[in-house]
């Protein structure tokens, strides 16, 4: 049987990448699979997508999805600035950035904050496992306070909450999900890819080699038992009809920039994902709790993104013809005259 095709006539195989070299069972591989699903289901043109990353296990993963897209594995913690330059040069492309908790929360925390502050239209994925995998298991800044390594080293510092930091810094789409939650993660990714602004996804992604002890909040067992979605996430792409089948008050329905809708069906918590203080309150109250909150915590789809504020010509700056980027000789003559 031939592969099913999406609305632009491509098969899931058209979104695949090279074979992964990460450990079997690594959460990052599941995330790569969900990125493939999301891009397929949205019908993105692979050549209209660019993939960027920093350094670490997470940052290797862009090689493992979308091999028909350009990729850039840059330097440790600095992918946000590379993405900024890339999108300034060609704002017509969709950009996916993949980072990890070491790449983001330690070495890259400065660029992370400024990326959120700029609201650059980039899907920024943190594959969050609480450890440095590629250097064999040192703690990262999202590791649990009091957690113990096999070697006996104890992490004495509190974990950074990247979602709260992103909201504080000006991000316009902030979510947490779990690499093992296939349905929620795919819906969140599709919504993020349809958002016009920075979308920060903190995705718990267990490290099966260095941080899968049952007591770690980044382990499969722990997250399976303690995942606490704040809502059911449904994404309705712009090319599908919206059917109204919910009771008023039970659902938050947010229209995204491209006409898609993100539908959040409230579970047992009362908070407003379009209100920053409400979202920050939710995250703050969850600190120290046993549960791992997931869902789209904050959304501000109307806020203009960084590129919109620059009043750029619609065409990519990178390939503007000579006569649009080099002023005529008369301009230089005028300048020379003013200096004579």
């Amino acid at each position: 049987m031939p592969d099913r095709l999406n609305h632009i006539g491509l098969a899931p195989a058209d979104y695949r990448g090279s074979k992964t070299t990460l450990c079997a069972g690594c959460g990052h591989n599941a995330i790569s699979e969900r990125i493939i699903d999301a891009c397929f289901e949205l019908g993105l043109q692979p050549h209209r997508v660019v993939k960027l990353s920093g350094i670490g296990c997470s940052s290797k993963s862009p090689a493992y999805f979308l091999s028909r897209s350009f990729g850039f594995n840059s330097v440790h913690g600095r992918m946000p600035s590379v993405a900024t330059g890339a999108l300034l040069a060609n704002r017509t492309l969709r950009a996916i950035g993949v980072s990890g908790d070491g790449d983001t929360a330690s070495i890259g925390i400065g660029q992370f904050i400024h990326l959120m502050r700029r609201n650059l239209p980039l899907v920024y994925i943190v594959e969050d496992n609480g450890v440095y995998g590629l250097t064999k298991g040192q703690f990262s800044a999202t590791a649990d306070e009091g957690q113990k390594l096999k070697s006996g080293v104890v992490n004495q510092l509190p974990a950074l909450d990247l979602c709260a930091m992103a909201i504080e810094s000006g991000a316009t789409f902030v979510a947490r999900s779990f690499s093992g939650d296939k349905r929620q993660l795919t819906q969140v990714l599709k919504a993020a890819l349809s958002h016009q602004g920075v979308a920060m996804l903190d995705i718990i992604s267990p490290c099966v080699t260095f941080n899968d002890q049952p007591e770690s909040t980044k382990s499969y067992q722990y997250v399976k038992q303690h995942e606490s979605p704040v809502h059911d996430v449904d994404f309705i792409p712009y090319f599908n009809d919206i059917t109204v089948d919910y009771e008023p008050g039970a659902v938050t329905d947010v229209r995204l920039h491209d006409g898609s809708h993100l539908r959040l069906r409230k579970l047992d918590r009362d908070y407003d994902p379009t209100d920053r203080r409400s979202a920050l309150g939710l995250l703050s109250n969850a600190h120290g709790g046993e549960e791992v909150l997931t869902g789209v915590f904050y959304l501000a789809p109307e806020k203009p993104d960084f590129l919109a504020g620059l009043n750029l010509v619609p065409e990519p700056l990178a390939t503007l013809p000579d006569d649009r980027v080099r002023p005529p000789q008369s301009v230089l003559e005028r300048i020379n005259a003013s200096l004579a």
């Binding site: 850039f72 840059s74 993405a83 060609n90 660029q111 990178a318």
Partner: peptide, 19 residues
Amino acid sequence: AEDELASAGIVLGAGWMGA
């Protein structure tokens, strides 16, 4: 940019894209 690291990243990201 926020610092010179980011300035250089912007230059390379844009150069990679063809600018």
